[in-house]
């Protein structure tokens, strides 16, 4: 997984790369709705559809940052609305513990967001994406993993296979 610098974007300044892990049953549909509703939002996100926010292993987030993401978003269903009943409850505890750790080592809280957006909330999706891109733009590139953007050959092999 490499994160490409967006080729389009406003102006010549820093264009952040945001990886968004979004749930198939809610936020992905919201993103879809936002698209067909022609809601404007920055094109800096790389959306990765997953079947549940509970599927997000903290390593996916850590790896995204180490591979050059400037921000990461995980978005799932509202509490009580999980397609798999409780997946998002587990995700919330796990990901917010991760957020404490990442904030602790100096990754600003704006760079890692965990939100709950239903399939109907296209405008919320637009707002969250706009917010995260604007915030990360203001913060600049993430410098902790300054030698990042490295992929082990085996990983690439898996992705291709």
């Amino acid at each position: 997984m490499t994160v490409e610098t967006p080729t389009t974007g406003a102006g010549t300044g820093f264009e952040p790369r945001i990886v968004a892990f979004i749930c198939n049953w809610c936020t992905y549909a919201a993103a879809d709705l936002a698209g067909v509703s022609r809601l404007q939002m920055p094109p800096n996100t790389l959306n990765i559809r997953v079947m549940c926010s509970g599927r997000i292993n903290p390593m996916l987030v850590i790896r995204a940052f180490s591979q050059g993401a400037d921000g990461v978003l995980v978005s799932g269903c509202h509490m009580g609305d999980c397609h798999y009943i409780t997946g998002n409850y587990y995700a919330r505890r796990r990901l917010l513990t991760l957020k404490s750790v990442l904030t602790g080592i100096g990754i600003e809280p704006e760079r890692f967001r965990v939100t709950w957006i239903s399939a109907a909330e296209a405008q919320d999706y637009q707002r969250v994406i706009t917010e995260i891109v604007e915030n990360v733009k203001r913060l600049g590139p993430l410098t902790l993993f300054r030698d990042g953007r490295v992929v082990a050959r085996e990983t690439t092999g898996c992705a291709e296979g």
């Binding site: 490295v150 082990a152 050959r153």
Partner: peptide, 11 residues
């Protein structure tokens, strides 16, 4: 010894 790919084209 490990081969580390930076991206698809270099490493």
């Amino acid at each position: 010894i490990t081969d580390v790919a930076k991206d698809e084209l270099s490493g």
